[in-house]
Design a protein around this nucleic acid. Structure first.
Lengths: 218, 218
DNA sequence: ATTATTTTAAGTATAAATACTTATATTTAC
DNA sequence: GTAAATATAAGTATTTATACTTAAAATAAT
């Protein structure tokens, strides 16, 4: 009865991490890594034709991040279960993953045993979130009940132009430089900068840099 | 003759990464992971009493980073070989590792095969640096020949006060705030800020934040 | 004890960012 | 096609940072 193995696809941009996890998984007789991907887009492509049981996906990847991959999967109604791995226990990531429809979320600080447990739980239709993560969920579940639709608002609802300005700001450009490069007035650049900092709720460049890095805003 | 295995200690703060690499290593019959550490200090302690053949160490770790561990090992004249793993192919890290006396340096983007090759090379007394890394070394070897003793100067030779100011700057404080908190004049704070940015060779806050993060300057 | 380094802090002038408000084109969406 | 959102940009006043130079105390090192 336990004849067919759980077919897994691994997506992580670090080969060594991938090889490590693969070795770890293949020590288990009921698991099988059928394919790997080194970025989000590749993962999606492989997924569509291989139709595995489970996808293990890292959040930070080039091209398309793990959360976006999960979102795409759910949107397309693919049957694959998803287990999100993360180096960072950023609250926002957790919430985004849940809302994207991830079946599980594990910190890389989790142990092998927890990893395998999560894997099986998710495979059999359950949800698995590592300890520290659960508390974040509980807290947000409560606050969400009070003011529905508020949490994890799609990123920060920056406009295209604001994102564009942001990316320049994050390169250390001054408003003047930005204005010159985009052929807009310095004042306009100022306004955009002002607005986006307000939206991101940061008071200075340092906080901006950190927040942007944390949420993967280019 | 190939009776005794290569005894390895693994140091990485992420349990899952550790478990993965361990699984990968223990698929090889000539290797054996005798112990693990989740931070630099722990690694050193274990090392001193276990005397393994080889230490695989991640750069970013709490308490004491990988490079510092390598440096301590060489200082104490321990016989263990060292293989440094890194997520980041930062030029500075590579150079620091070499100067600390590391026997090998591998990017986590390396494959399992390259990993094992590196391992064996280092164990048998050789040096191993993954492809992309070698070019960095070559370049710096040349420039060093011209002006010896210049490269990888111990951090950036910031003074204590400068480091202190830096940590405030990195919290997003203004010179005025810093001055108030440290009971110095605003002008003094300005000078320190100016000098430290010069020493770190950055032109703006963003670059400062990145550089500081990269080199682990608090 | 005497260099050397570090820390302190002032001056001067310029450039940039902050914290708004107001207001008009221009898109985009329903 | 009209409303809503976005992008544009000006005004005003204040605060901060930049880019130096100079120079005196205070500490640390040999």
């Amino acid at each position: 009865m336990s004849e067919q193995k759980i077919r897994i696809i691994l997506a992580d941009d670090h080969v060594l991490v991938r090889d490590g996890i693969k070795a770890l998984l293949e020590d288990q007789e009921d698991l099988e890594v059928v394919n790997e991907a080194s970025d989000g887009l590749e993962a999606l492509k492989i997924l569509e034709k291989k139709a595995p049981d489970l996808l293990i996906v890292d959040i930070r990847m080039p091209e398309m991040n793990g959360i976006e991959v999960v979102r795409a999967i759910k949107k397309q109604g693919l049957a694959v279960k998803t287990l999100v791995l993360s180096m960072h226990d950023s609250e926002e990531y957790v919430l985004q993953s849940v809302e994207a429809g991830a079946d599980g979320y594990l910190l890389k600080g989790s142990s092998k045993d927890e990893f395998l447990k999560a894997l099986h739980t998710v495979y059999s239709g359950g949800k698995y979130f590592s300890g520290d993560v659960s508390s974040i969920l509980v807290e947000n579940f409560i606050s969400r009940a009070k003011s529905p639709g508020t949490v994890a608002e799609d990123k920060f609802s920056l406009t295209k132009r604001e994102r564009q300005i942001l990316s320049h700001v994050l390169k250390g450009k001054s408003n003047k430089q930005i204005a010159e490069e985009l052929n807009i007035s310095k004042r306009t650049a100022e306004v955009h900068r002002f607005n986006l900092m307000k939206k991101l709720q940061v008071k200075n460049l340092i906080e901006l840099a950190n927040k942007a890095k944390e949420y993967g805003l280019s």
